[in-house]
Amino acid sequence: MEKEKSSAFETHMLVVSVSPHIKQPVTVEKIMWTVVACLIPPLILSVFIFGPRVLIITLISVISCVLTEAISQKALGRPVTIRDGSAVITGLLLAYVIPPGVPYYLPILGAVMAIFVTKQLFGGLGANIFNPALIGRAFLMATFPVAMTSAWITPKYIQFKADALSSATPLFIIKHYGIKALIQTYGSLSYIYKNFFVGIRPGCIGETSAFLLLLGGLYLIYKGYIKWYIPVSMIGTIALLTWIFGGEHLFEGNPLVAILSGGVMLGAFFMATDYATSPNWKTGQLIYGAGIGLITVLIRLKGGYPEGVCYAILLMNGFTPALDSWFKPKRFAPPKGVKK
């Protein structure tokens, strides 16, 4: 008894550190692996509709990202932090934004660009300015434009009314043939809504299922890991602007098809909300999301590409430092005369 009583003091085992002494049981690892878990269901669906090669591409992407992270951290003399799950997320997201039919070596190149150049050379987790997975994709778009814009696969479990465009992405059809052609291809608008919502449509590996992405995103919001500001303002802006300007006449666009196609859901919940590259205060986040929406619609309607989410997010990444310095939390009753 006597001995036990003071043992901790005698052996100097007591920890003395700064307050607070209790912290909420949320760690970077926990957040990252939760995001990984939320990204798995869309992949499973993708394997069913596009076949096992999407799983192989995703695995190659993830493994390349993790390896690149480990090697570049070693080379740069930093602690190796591949256990934190952030490279796994980048690997998943990189695979999710490339077409299912690309050659297997493509994600390897994208991974080096994403992790080594975009993330580690800029200082590692939290210090990068641009979203690594999206830079990876932009790099592949520039270097392998044909594969990246044509390696689509026709999904299983869906009946097309007209087969000519069955493997083209919905946004490609809308851009070049108009929404009527899209309805013709799929038979009816309601059939489009249903299948796009579930995720049975041509597209990039992980972007097709609005439902599963929404589910994952809502879970992250429920856990408090991400806030609703960015997804809501981004999706809202896309819907609104498409409705106004996306049709033949003003106010005739179809907002629902716009947000159910392309990378809107994936981008809104899993890419635009990336901590490092998005503003960290709500006012800035609302503007940032709206900016992404605006640029996305601009590219879709006026630009050369059918889809603009990727570039829109990257462009707004560049505005993040400015948004953060313009929109800060309001102080609790600042002293008079001091502008803060």
């Binding site: 008894m1 036990e4 009583k5 003071s6 043992s7 901790a8 003091f9 100097h12 085992m13 007591l14 920890v15 003395v16 550190s17 700064v18 307050s19 607070p20 002494h21 209790i22």
Partner: peptide, 24 residues
């Protein structure tokens, strides 16, 4: 009645703003 063997930290005040000490 003494401390338990798994004692790790002694804090004067509350856990949010108190101070850790190293001596009794």
């Amino acid at each position: 009645g003494g401390t338990t063997p798994d004692l790790k930290k002694v804090v004067v005040g509350g856990p949010m703003m108190g101070f850790a000490i190293s001596t009794l």
